[in-house]
Amino acid sequence: MAGVGGNGASAAAPLNQWRHDGWKLFQYYLDKTTPHAVYRWIGTFVVASLYALRVFYIEGFYIITYGVGIYILNLLIGFLSPLVDPELEHSDGPILPTTDSDEFKPFIRRLPEFKFWYSITKAFCVAFVMTFFSMFDVPVFWPILLCYWIVLFILTMKRQIVHMIKYRYIPFSIGKQKYSRKKSSASSSGSRAD
């Protein structure tokens, strides 16, 4: 009996090592994509387009598409929400300013952009794989699901926009603010060099 357990453990060791090495390689390439946000989102758009084409040509799996849509809506709420919501909890850390005299605190998302992208991409990949199994093709009348999702989206975004207006925050940065020297200080510093 002792020999059986020993052989099973020795056979599982290479499998665990292979899985560990594969995960490290995957994590390495995932980490390398971090600074390339535009290319990551283009890749996600390609994956989502492949999924949409598959669902369109098969003319099925609408319930999976609805589930992915609800999941993405949930992720979007986390992406647009601050880390510390003033309505839900009070924190000693940075909070959103509520009056003009409050100190500016940077907007920190509840769900960072990288995790938002990764979750959406993973959702479309899982949904794409699910379209190869007929047990997930539940017959539904898709226009009802689409209308229901649109109503949910409008109500959720309305609530989120009201929250943004109430606490005066914008979850997007348009770009880094650039400062330029005044011409008078630049010309005076140039004349001192002479």
Rank of each mutant, 00 (worst) to 15 (best):
S101N: 08
T99Q: 09
R109C: 06
F141G: 03
I108A: 04
E113W: 09
P143G: 07
L111H: 00
L111A: 01
K158A: 14
K122P: 01
L96A: 01
D92G: 12
I108Q: 12
L96D: 00
C125F: 12
G93Q: 14
I95T: 14
E113C: 11
D100V: 06
K105L: 06
F104L: 08
V151G: 03
S134P: 10
I120M: 08
Y118S: 12
P97S: 03
F114I: 09
I108M: 13
F136V: 10
W149Y: 15
A127S: 12
V138L: 13
S91H: 12
V138F: 07
V138A: 07
F133K: 01
F124A: 00
I154L: 07
V138N: 03
I154F: 13
F116C: 09
T121I: 04
I95W: 03
V140G: 03
L146C: 06
S119G: 13
T99M: 11
E103K: 13
S101I: 13
P143N: 09
S134E: 15
I108P: 00
E103G: 04
D92R: 09
L96F: 01
K115P: 00
W117A: 11
C147I: 14
F116Y: 15
W142I: 08
K122C: 14
A127R: 00
E103F: 07
T121E: 08
V129P: 00
P97K: 02
L145Y: 05
S134V: 14
F107E: 02
L155H: 03
K158S: 14
K115I: 10
F132Q: 07
T121K: 03
F141C: 04
D92F: 09
L146N: 02
L96M: 06
R110Y: 11
D100A: 04
L111K: 02
C147P: 00
K122D: 14
L152D: 15
P139I: 10
K122Q: 14
S119K: 08
L146I: 09
I144M: 05
K115R: 15
R110F: 10
L155Y: 11
L145F: 10
F114V: 06
F114K: 08
S134H: 14
P106A: 10
F133I: 10
A123Y: 02
T131P: 01
S134I: 07
T121C: 12
L152A: 12
C125S: 14
L145S: 07
P112S: 11
P106E: 11
F136E: 05
K115L: 15
T121V: 03
T98R: 15
W149H: 15
F116N: 06
K158L: 13
I95E: 07
F114N: 06
F132H: 08
P97L: 06
L111C: 10
L145V: 08
F132E: 12
V151F: 10
P143V: 02
I150G: 04
W117G: 07
V140W: 00
